[in-house]
């Protein structure tokens, strides 16, 4: 079993011995998987369909319960759902393949949504929403509803929502999966720019070679259902 390294950087994410079994599957989706990402790194998790890479991302965000293993985020090891909720509210931002914007809310309100779960007053929320929209080159989208946005615009709004509570870590699950090449490139450029500006740690699940190559390094998950063999390989970027 190998464990992904992060060089000399302090670990933003340190996952050890992750095991996850789904009831409908005979073999585990994650099988004693170790994964470490240094602070400020931009890492792509790559692998074939069904290899467990998205499962790994959800495990890193506490959205699925593990059968075994620990995940530390910025030195904290949450052990309860409520602790994970708090981490997602303060330290982890999430972006998904589908944008999951709420259709009845404007783009601005969608970005504001995570802040309603935090103790941020209304004027500060609006200021931050406008700032985030500016960061994703979407200032003009503030009052527009998702139905009126293009795919690229929607995903930029989703990225802004992922950053709403100013997390230190951004986890993205196939963020370009439903975009064309030009929009994919734009999203990746955006993530790289935000990473540089905000000092983010960015972990992206992708099957897009272009996206993977844009990251500092690639972490390959292959057939996570092995037994006592090496099931994870790390590739240099």
């Amino acid at each position: 079993m190998t464990r992904a390294g992060s060089g000399n950087l302090p670990a933003a994410v340190d996952a050890r011995g992750l095991v996850k079994r789904f009831p409908a599957q005979q073999t585990p989706a994650l099988d004693h998987l170790d994964f470490c990402v240094g602070s400020g790194e931009m890492v792509a998790i790559v692998g074939p369909s069904g290899s467990g890479k998205s499962t790994l991302l959800y495990a890193l965000s506490g959205l699925i319960a593990l059968d075994a293993g620990t995940v530390s985020v910025n030195g904290q090891t949450p052990d309860r759902p409520a602790a994970w909720t708090l981490l997602r509210r303060t330290a982890i931002g999430l972006v998904f393949q589908e944008d999951w914007l709420i259709p009845t809310l404007t783009a601005g309100q969608n970005i504001e949504l995570p802040m309603l779960g935090a103790a941020i007053d209304k004027s500060a929320r609006v200021r931050r929403v406008r700032s985030l929209l500016a960061d994703v080159n979407g200032s003009e989208l503030f009052d527009r509803r998702p139905a009126s946005l293009s795919g690229g615009e929607r995903q930029r709004v989703a990225v802004a929502r992922g950053l709403a509570n100013m997390p230190r870590i951004l986890l993205a699950d196939e963020p370009t999966g439903e975009l064309d090449t030009a929009n994919s490139r734009a999203i990746i450029d955006l993530l790289k720019r935000l990473r540089a500006k905000k000092g983010l740690t960015v972990i992206i699940v992708t099957h897009d070679l272009q996206v993977a190559e844009a990251c500092d390094r690639q972490f390959l998950v292959v057939d996570g259902r092995g037994t006592d063999q090496v099931i994870v390989k790390e590739h240099a970027g």
């Binding site: 959205l63 909720t85 509210r89 949504l113 779960g117």
Partner: peptide, 8 residues
């Protein structure tokens, strides 16, 4: 998505 963005 509310749960994912940290709503208790």
């Amino acid at each position: 998505i509310m749960s994912a963005v940290g709503w208790a």
